[in-house]
Simulated assay, not measured.
Amino acid sequence: MPDARTGHAPRLARLRRRPEAWLFAVILLVGALFGALAPGFLTLANVIDLLETYSVQAIMAMGLFVVLVSGGIDISFAATASVAQYCAALLAVQAGLPAPLVILAGLLIGTALGCVNAALIHYVRITSIIATIAMMSVSFSLLMYFSGGKSIYDLPDWWITRVTFYEVETASGDLVRLTLPIVAMLLATLFTWAMMTRSSVGRQLYAMGGNPEAARRVGISIGRLHFVAYGFLGFMAAAGGLVQAHRVGESVPNAMVNTELAVLSAAVLGGASLSGGIGTVPGVLLGIVLLAILQNGLNLLGVSSYFFQIVIGLTILVSTSITVLSSRRGRRHRILAEAPAHA
């Protein structure tokens, strides 16, 4: 039972650990509100369109979630996605490589950039946010310098041809399609969930994020897990970049820039703690869904896009505040609980 002197630390801790229920409730409430105010919002066609539109952000959010659970943070994943996408496009267009080699090369480039972040953090001992901001600046600047900011429009047909796994026509005449971006998002989500909940690597990542020193003492390789977490994010960022090029039919060097805060806010909104060791894949996915609903609903109502940026900023501020208050009051509770033993 919580001590009266400790305030509501357990309640705040529960809010951080199990956000799925209230997130789902908020999604239902906001969805009903926009459904009443914006005609066409609650149609199946609009819902499927939202899933496809936000599939790339969801894929990257899965990778960022793993890094956050490990106790780190990465701001460079959008630049990584841009570099991997553009390099793959060059290999496809100028070198004429076949699809399997192009996709493999793009994924390897993203993974390698993620591992560079891990090396800087683990071996050079640079704080994760500083290392990844520096890598974001270097990666994106090099991409813009060598590409000249020029887009690649003549991607091969195998890359830009729309892939539909299922199609149905609604009573209103709208076509609802289950497309490749949605399937890729579902596969990324399922794989991340399985890795984090059904493998020893996932348990070790949670342990490292919760208490790195304790994890080190029980024999967990912190360095190896850094490469796993940041390499995985690089892989997912590259996958998101390849899917993005498939969706829009071209490779634009700066297309993925400025998506960092939206993906980060979705992750923390879904319960991934910025201090590590906490979060679930369903929570992150619901965070993406909530942000998608908010942006789409506000657009349908004609509200300025700047207001959505305010929502993202407030999301990060509130989530961070809850994390800090929860950990601070948790430490106070432990100190008070241990005080009689030292008396």
Rank of each mutant, 00 (worst) to 15 (best):
residue 3 D to G: 15
residue 3 D to V: 04
residue 4 A to Y: 12
residue 8 H to E: 07
residue 8 H to L: 15
residue 15 L to T: 12
residue 24 F to T: 15
residue 24 F to G: 15
residue 30 V to P: 12
residue 31 G to C: 13
residue 38 A to G: 09
residue 42 L to K: 04
residue 51 L to Y: 10
residue 57 Q to S: 10
residue 62 M to H: 04
residue 66 V to M: 12
residue 67 V to Q: 08
residue 69 V to R: 01
residue 72 G to P: 04
residue 73 I to Y: 04
residue 74 D to E: 12
residue 79 A to T: 08
residue 82 S to W: 10
residue 87 C to L: 15
residue 91 L to W: 05
residue 92 A to Q: 01
residue 92 A to S: 09
residue 96 G to A: 08
residue 98 P to R: 07
residue 100 P to V: 09
residue 101 L to N: 04
residue 102 V to Q: 02
residue 106 G to Q: 06
residue 111 T to G: 11
residue 112 A to M: 09
residue 112 A to D: 04
residue 113 L to K: 01
residue 116 V to H: 00
residue 116 V to E: 00
residue 117 N to K: 04
residue 126 I to M: 14
residue 126 I to W: 07
residue 135 M to E: 02
residue 136 M to L: 14
residue 136 M to Y: 13
residue 137 S to G: 05
residue 140 F to R: 13
residue 142 L to D: 03
residue 144 M to V: 14
residue 146 F to M: 05
residue 151 S to M: 14
residue 152 I to D: 01
residue 155 L to K: 00
residue 160 I to T: 15
residue 160 I to G: 00
residue 161 T to I: 01
residue 168 V to D: 09
residue 172 S to Q: 14
residue 173 G to Y: 02
residue 175 L to F: 13
residue 175 L to N: 06
residue 176 V to W: 03
residue 177 R to H: 07
residue 177 R to I: 09
residue 179 T to W: 05
residue 182 I to K: 00
residue 182 I to V: 14
residue 182 I to E: 05
residue 184 A to Y: 00
residue 189 T to G: 02
residue 197 T to L: 09
residue 201 V to G: 00
residue 202 G to W: 05
residue 202 G to F: 03
residue 203 R to Y: 13
residue 214 A to D: 01
residue 222 I to G: 04
residue 231 G to I: 07
residue 232 F to V: 00
residue 233 L to R: 00
residue 234 G to N: 00
residue 234 G to K: 01
residue 236 M to L: 15
residue 239 A to D: 08
residue 239 A to E: 06
residue 244 Q to T: 02
residue 259 T to L: 15
residue 262 A to D: 15
residue 262 A to S: 13
residue 263 V to R: 03
residue 265 S to G: 02
residue 265 S to W: 01
residue 270 G to S: 07
residue 270 G to R: 07
residue 279 G to T: 07
residue 283 G to Y: 05
residue 284 V to G: 02
residue 285 L to Q: 08
residue 287 G to C: 02
residue 290 L to Y: 08
residue 293 I to F: 12
residue 297 G to E: 07
residue 299 N to T: 13
residue 303 V to M: 10
residue 305 S to E: 12
residue 308 F to M: 06
residue 309 Q to W: 09
residue 309 Q to L: 15
residue 310 I to W: 10
residue 310 I to C: 14
residue 311 V to W: 02
residue 316 I to K: 11
residue 319 S to N: 10
residue 319 S to H: 00
residue 319 S to F: 01
residue 320 T to C: 02
residue 321 S to H: 09
residue 324 V to K: 10
residue 327 S to M: 12
residue 330 G to L: 02
residue 332 R to N: 08
residue 334 R to G: 04
residue 336 L to R: 14
residue 337 A to G: 10
residue 343 A to S: 12
